[in-house]
Amino acid sequence: MKLGVFMVLLSGRKFEDALDYVASKGLKAVEIGTGGYPGNAHCNPAELLENETALKNFKNAVESRGLIISALSCHGNPLHPQKAVAKEFHDVFVKTVELAEKLEVPVVNTFSGCPGDHEDAKYPNWPVAPWPNDYQEILTWQWENKVIPYWTEWGKYASDRNVKIGLELHGGFSVHTPGTLLRLREAAGEVIGANLDPSHMWWQGIDPVQAIHILGRAGAIHHFHAKDTSIDPINVNKHGLTDMQSYANMLDRAWQFRSVGFGHDVKEWADMMSALRLVGYDYVVSIEHEDGLMSVEEGFSKAVQNLQQVLIEEPLGEMWWV
């Protein structure tokens, strides 16, 4: 496995300066935002696709520092019920897939999206309860009319270009658990896999190690994010895990994102690394920083330090003792 970083935390730095900083930390991979929610501070697909020289310079800037691009990321909602909003996210996704093909980057990360509850809806509708039965009817309509048709069509578009789609299992979107990911993968094909982020498993009450086993045994982990979550034992009893308060309201929230090691101890992260190796995932562990209690530099640096203790980097040798 290689240790990498989701470069959006360094959006305030120029691209090559950010790459120098990443390389100085001993990392081997970068995940680069291309638009959507992550923005495109370091990579504008439309510009690179139209300029071969700029494309070569971009690739060389990464490779000359001993780095690889683990994924291009354009998290968005291409199923948004407002057609103009959906089109903007969709167009970025398509350009990102085309750029990934040109750069020979194997994965594009995004969200599954979440539709509304009917054709003329204005806002996404995320049903999370089976009763009253209205919610089941909404869920069925969404999957049969929006989720499966979209990802079947555009999954094939990506597959035809040798690009895999890593869907982040994130609350608020149709694919948010191992089960919903596998449901879509069964319908749309093996091009669909997870960009598995443990932080979103913990706040949904899912054990990330078990999520790794469930998805890994199906060959359905395309990419992996390293971000932690802490759950407040008092506030969670007041607000529940579906706490709708702003992330900025940290003192009263039921849970919050943390840097690696500050929500769960290093042993739990070691268990995840072992589980990834066990199910055959030997790609990149990409640090994502969304810790409201630490600066970018400190949160990132501590995540690097903690993960370097547990990352399994060397190839498997023979079991000489067997």
Rank of each mutant, 00 (worst) to 15 (best):
M7V: 11
F173Q: 08
I212H: 00
S301R: 13
F262E: 10
H118S: 15
E314L: 14
V266I: 14
F300M: 02
W321K: 13
V92Y: 06
H200L: 00
K146P: 07
H80I: 07
G193D: 05
I212Q: 01
N162Q: 13
E186Y: 10
G179M: 09
E137S: 11
K83I: 10
G66N: 02
V97T: 04
A270R: 15
E168A: 01
R161G: 03
K302L: 13
K14S: 14
A303R: 03
V105G: 06
R161T: 08
A29L: 00
E313H: 01
E101H: 10
L103H: 13
H223F: 04
V62W: 03
K14Q: 15
M250C: 02
I206A: 05
E313F: 08
E190F: 11
T180F: 05
F6A: 02
I287S: 03
V260I: 03
S301W: 00
D282W: 07
G263M: 07
L55F: 03
I32R: 03
N145W: 02
I148E: 12
N44S: 10
S301N: 13
G261M: 05
P45G: 05
G26K: 00
L27Q: 05
E119D: 14
W320A: 12
S24R: 05
V296T: 13
F111Y: 15
E313V: 11
K28R: 15
L181T: 04
A41V: 04
K28M: 09
I214T: 15
I69S: 03
W154I: 00
Q245N: 10
D243G: 01
E318T: 11
S73E: 08
H289P: 01
R217N: 15
G280R: 05
P315L: 02
G12Y: 11
T180Q: 01
G4I: 13
K83A: 12
T110P: 01
D282N: 13
T34G: 08
I221F: 07
G292I: 07
D282F: 06
G193A: 10
K164C: 08
L139I: 02
S70Q: 05
D120M: 11
G205R: 04
E47Y: 03
L241F: 09
P106G: 11
A158F: 09
K87W: 05
H90C: 07
D117M: 11
I212K: 02
E98A: 02
W154M: 03
T96Y: 10
S199Q: 02
F15Q: 09
R183H: 14
V310A: 03
A248H: 09
H239L: 09
A218K: 15
A54D: 06
Y123E: 14
V322P: 07
C74R: 05
S230Y: 11
D160P: 06
S112Q: 07
L72F: 07
L276W: 08
H289G: 00
